[in-house]
């Protein structure tokens, strides 16, 4: 098992120039023919943040300055989850000319999606950190905890994209289902409203048993409040991420060799 994983990883490494080139082209394609360039990846979350902050800070009587970075982290996070799931569904179909040409480690194609969306996510997140920094009056050392948190998010998104990619080849309704599920979770997760709103109204379980809310909290804590997440908070995320990762590995181990026959 371990040695199999190791040789799989080394095979991925051998193709590193190939999949990094895929990611690079994906990013270039997005920016090359546009005036705004990099700005595009910010436009959507920024516009949403501006509008929602204005409305909500009035309706919910929230402080605009702290509400805006909270929204921006939420929207950036959601953008990553959404594109990892939806584009993840189609990533093998999109890579069919390569998959039919030679045997390749299939997870490089879900990785491509996560890295491309991850790039946009990181740009928006940096902006949120700066925004929150000006509010809090300085950079908090707690930001260092973002490293393990983002790593967990990466594993989560990659596993999710991989599992969905396989599901989609066998069950083409997967993408529709994923879109519905995403919409449901968008409202169940404190993306565009503060988590306190759920707690105050007795809906704490939506925070405790929702992996997306738990991961988002890991990321928001150091950025918005300047404090480190507790080990318990990490453990709770681990309870979801580790089985998901294991499921992704099992899926690949069982189906990778047979994928071509299902396409």
């Amino acid at each position: 098992m371990i040695s199999g994983l190791k040789s799989y990883m080394s095979e991925m490494w051998e193709y590193r120039y190939f999949w990094t080139q895929l990611v690079r082209s994906d990013l270039q394609k997005r920016y090359r023919r546009s005036i705004l360039g990099l700005g595009w990846s910010l436009l959507q979350p920024l516009a949403m943040t501006a509008v929602l902050s204005l409305v909500y800070s009035r309706v919910l009587k929230m402080d605009f300055g702290s509400f805006a970075p909270m929204l921006l982290t939420g929207l950036a996070f959601w953008g990553l989850i959404q594109s990892s799931s939806v584009q993840g569904c189609g990533c093998f179909i999109a890579a069919e000319p390569f998959i039919r040409q030679q045997p390749l480690p299939t997870v490089i194609f879900s990785l491509r999606i996560v890295l491309t969306s991850g790039f946009h996510f990181l740009i928006a997140l940096t902006l949120a950190v700066l925004m929150a920094g000006t509010n809090l009056g300085g950079v908090s050392p707690a930001l260092i905890t973002l490293i393990p948190s983002l790593l967990l998010l990466f594993v989560f998104a990659w596993s999710l994209a991989t599992i969905l990619a396989y599901c989609h080849v066998y069950f083409p309704d997967t993408q529709h289902l994923a879109e519905v599920a995403l919409q449901v979770f968008m409202y169940l997760t404190p993306i565009v409203y503060p988590p306190s709103l759920l707690e105050q109204n007795g809906l704490w379980f939506l925070l405790e048993f929702n992996p997306l809310a738990l991961i988002l909290q890991l990321i928001r804590d150091p950025i918005l409040a300047g404090h480190c997440p507790t080990l318990w908070a990490y453990a709770k995320v681990g309870i979801f991420v580790i089985p998901l990762g294991a499921l992704a590995i099992m899926t690949v181990a069982k189906l990778e060799r047979r994928l071509i026959f299902a396409m």
């Binding site: 190939f18 080139q21 082209s25 394609k29 000319p97 390569f98 039919r100 040409q101 030679q102 390749l104």
Partner: peptide, 19 residues
């Protein structure tokens, strides 16, 4: 097979080469 339709010739040389 082994080509990206939207990429130009040069890019596809790279893709194939890296493959």
């Amino acid at each position: 097979l082994g080509f990206d339709e939207d990429a130009n010739g040069w890019e596809n040389i790279r893709y194939r080469g890296y493959l």
